[in-house]
């Protein structure tokens, strides 16, 4: 069953066309990667899907026409983004950040349970729950950003470069958690510059170049594709 579908999706910044007619279809429960080099338009595409940028073309999410919906309305429908560069609220504490993630959830006890679950997932965050989020390390901020997005109980999680700037051990830890999240029936669209990592993790992938999808298919096929190997896997 299709969860997210975008058709002939175009985004422009002023006169500059960053996304030039992209089609994506993601099924419920899938882990899909979107790879591509710097400046290919991946982040722009994600931001527009989340309602942060205006786009032309069509988009449906969970069976609803999602065009011209504001990002807060999309969150309500079950679409959450973990933005590039984490985007934690640096002046709020760790627990306040998590509570912000549950902004639309009214039931206080379920918020409390969700927070406990996030703390189990990331014991590091529990240790620092009253600390101002701006003082966390990059990896801790990434944990917080993921935990915060999960607080909204999304149907689908969009992750923009979760490995960026993190040490290999932290990357491993983060991807372990993303895997756990996926097992709890959350659909995942993962944007990564690290194509190797993304193709090993996701079952299926899209390759984006200069604002267009140039290739798509199962990860194992893309891994052996000569053009992908040359451009993104370093050989």
């Amino acid at each position: 069953m299709t969860l997210l579908k975008v058709t002939d999706f175009r985004v422009a910044y002023g006169g500059i066309k960053a996304v030039k007619g992209v089609n994506l279809e993601i099924l419920r429960g899938e882990i899909v990667a979107l790879i591509g080099s710097n400046g290919a338009g991946k982040t722009t595409l994600l931001k527009a899907i989340c309602g942060l940028l205006r786009f032309e073309g069509q988009m449906t999410f969970a069976g609803v026409d999602a065009k011209r919906k504001r990002s807060d309305q999309l969150v309500k429908l079950g679409l959450s983004l973990v933005p590039e560069g984490r985007g934690v609220f640096g002046r709020l504490t760790v627990s306040e950040n998590l509570m912000m993630g549950a902004f639309l959830i009214k039931d206080k006890t379920s918020i409390k349970n969700d927070i406990d679950r996030i703390y189990q997932m990331f014991p590091r965050l529990a240790e620092r729950k009253n600390q101002i989020a701006g003082t966390l390390s990059g990896g801790e901020q990434q944990m917080l950003a993921i935990g915060r997005a999960m607080m909204a109980r999304p149907k689908m999680l969009l992750l923009d470069e979760p490995s960026m700037g993190l040490a290999p051990m932290m990357v491993e830890k983060i991807f372990h958690v993303i895997d756990e999240i996926s097992n709890s029936n959350v659909t995942i669209l993962l944007v990564e510059q690290n194509a190797n990592l993304a193709l090993n993790f996701a079952a299926r992938a899209y390759v984006m170049d200069s604002g267009r999808i140039t290739l798509d298919g199962p990860s194992f096929e893309l891994k052996t594709d000569s053009s992908v190997r040359r451009a993104y896997l370093g050989g």
């Binding site: 609220f89 902004f103 639309l104």
Partner: peptide, 21 residues
């Protein structure tokens, strides 16, 4: 109040939390 502080810090991220800015 928390939503106001979050919005003051970063309106677009706050909207990603479901806050109507």
């Amino acid at each position: 109040g928390r939503a106001m502080r979050a919005t003051a810090e970063n309106p677009s991220i706050a909207s990603l939390m479901g806050v109507n800015v």
